[in-house]
Design a protein around this nucleic acid. Structure first.
Length: 497
RNA sequence: CGGGGCGUAGCGCAGCCUGGUAGCGCGUUCGGUUCGGGACCGAAAGGUCGGAGGUUCAAAUCCUCUCGCCCCGACCA
């Protein structure tokens, strides 16, 4: 490599520092500083979020949901209507007490989530079974006063999407909860290249006010788990709290069955910690704002003119290629940029590598002469430059990017498999989780909150989820790793972000 | 909120102990030579030393308070 001082701390040296270095060097975001716990998402980072939004939004539309928008401020009394919901969110609420120069009669809370205010409006909108199901999604910002923040993973204000639906019966609501979880899982793996495990949260980790919370859990490179998305079965809890009733086909008045589900800008943090390396950000093509950068190589003005002509022609040709995944309702063109800054080519290589651009195209006099391009992928493969016939390269670029996307997922899966273990004794368990890092451990658990709390207190390890069928080891009875009491199946245990 | 660390030029830091007109590296701007893995020469711009108060003839430096960031813990998408 180079003799220059490293700008990115190696992962082996200090993982959290590495994470921050990658974000800074890729120019994704920076701490706001002037606003506690908040971050500024910079254009390149926001472009990734926009890609996430577009892909997910398309899937939400495909599953019948419509976007809407509800107020940022929620009357404080709304929050207190659902007992568990208040209890869960009270500590992290920001409250507006003054406006227009006067103290408000009733304070507003800045939404930490919108179940309550949406519940209120569902109550007004729903009166008959004909109004159901009500399938709403909102793209919004929310605020939770967190004690400790990390960029993208946990900030006081964050961006997300929250789906809110109301159904005529519990089965339909449960189906919805599972359907959207599967959308998340499919998106995480297919688009982000981030393998996940689908499961059910324990009572401790369940959403405040839900009867059941499903989740997808991803593994970061240090083996820690990241809750990447949740889908809640709210039962009739909010229906009762906000008096959301409908007249059924048989004419009876019943409370609706609701669901809610969300993913946030945390996904960007997960994306970073899934693929990136000591050289900086690594992005899957499906979410990369820029797919390829052309670096022109020349020694004099004459060469420069010729190379720039060729570069512009190549860019135009590549930019017409639609790389949207199959089945989506939008088009997504290959984004290719030419870096014509007055810098040494080597400096440009490092610049774009830190930003995770999947492919670099070098174009110089020799390439024009031979009708070829010199390309190098950001990671994987042989790691070497490849010289390809220009037209064949253009024809094959989509397949090449698809292959790169698959490689990233495969590498992430391999890492996850490497760090996934099955443990049966408490001694092993303690030893496994001794250090700072973590693994995914499949262990038996007696199903009690007490045992869960004891395990956490002693080892910082939490039950990430009870796997859905097929997501973990086949269910077979055993004995709890901590207490030795009977257990029906293994659950996923890990330290978490 | 508890424990620890840190706030000095865009970034990374020195200076602080032992008060005396603010420095280094990288980056930036301009000019030139360069250009297939982080170029070089020359010139220049850029800081109310996180903020407030105090001690002092004099404060980046000493004292008090405060705000923010990072790490560790408790809470969480």
């Amino acid at each position: 490599m180079s003799s220059k001082p490293e700008k990115i701390t190696p992962r082996s040296e200090d993982y959290p520092q590495w994470y921050q270095d990658v974000i800074r060097e890729a120019d994704l975001a920076e701490p706001a500083k002037v606003v506690k716990g908040c971050m500024v998402i910079k254009p390149y980072g926001f472009a990734i979020w926009e890609k996430i939004q577009r892909t997910l939004d398309s899937r939400f539309k495909d599953t019948g949901h419509q976007n809407a928008y509800f107020p940022l401020l929620v009357p404080q009394s709304f929050i207190t209507k659902e007992a568990e919901h208040v209890e869960g969110f009270a500590p992290e609420l920001a409250v507006v007490t003054h406006a227009g120069g006067e103290e408000l009669e009733e304070p507003y809370v800045v939404r930490p989530t919108s179940e309550t205010i949406i519940g209120h409006f569902f109550g007004k909108w729903i009166s008959s079974y004909r109004d159901l199901p009500m399938l709403i999604n909102q793209w919004a910002n929310v605020m939770r006063w967190e004690l400790r923040t990390r960029m993208f993973l946990r900030t006081t204000e964050f961006l997300w999407q929250e789906g809110h639906t109301a159904h005529a019966n519990h089965d339909e609501a449960k189906e919805e909860v599972r359907r959207m979880l599967d959308v998340y899982a499919d998106f995480a793996q297919g688009t982000m290249g981030m393998p996940v495990i689908r499961g059910t949260k324990t009572e401790t980790e369940r959403f405040a006010g839900a009867v059941d919370t499903l989740c997808i859990e991803a593994m970061m490179q240090d083996g820690k788990a990241l809750q990447a998305g949740t889908s809640h079965d709210l039962g009739q809890n909010f229906g009762k709290a906000f008096d959301v009733k409908f007249q059924s086909e048989s004419g009876e008045l019943e409370y609706v069955w609701q669901t809610s589900w969300g993913v946030s800008t945390r996904l960007v943090g997960g994306l970073i910690m899934t693929h990136s390396d000591d050289d900086g950000l690594v992005l899957p093509p499906a979410l990369a704002p820029i797919h390829a950068v052309i670096i022109p190589i020349y020694r004099n003005d004459e060469q420069k003119a010729a190379v720039m002509d060729a570069a512009n022609a190549l860019r135009k040709e590549l930019g017409a290629i639609d790389i949207a995944p199959q089945g989506v309702r939008y088009r997504d063109f290959l984004e290719v940029q030419i870096d014509d800054r007055d810098m040494r080519p080597g400096a440009k290589f490092y610049h774009w590598e830190r930003r995770g651009v999947p492919m670099r195209i070098e174009l110089g006099p020799k390439d024009l002469e031979k009708g070829q391009v010199c390309i190098k992928m950001r990671t994987g493969g042989t790691g070497k430059k490849e010289f390809l016939d220009r037209d064949a390269f253009v024809a094959g670029i989509k397949a090449r990017l698809d292959a790169y996307q698959d490689e990233l997922l495969a590498a992430a899966k391999a890492r996850m498999a490497e760090r996934t273990v099955t443990l049966d004794t408490w001694d092993e368990f303690v030893k496994t989780f001794e250090g700072d890092d973590s693994v995914f451990a499949w262990c038996h658990w007696d199903g009690t909150t007490q045992t869960e709390a004891a395990i956490k207190a002693e080892t910082k390890v939490t039950i990430r989820c009870i796997p859905l069928p097929g997501e973990g080891p086949d269910a077979e009875p055993g004995t709890c790793i901590k207490t030795g009491k009977p257990s029906a199946q293994r659950v996923l245990m890990a330290k978490a972000y």
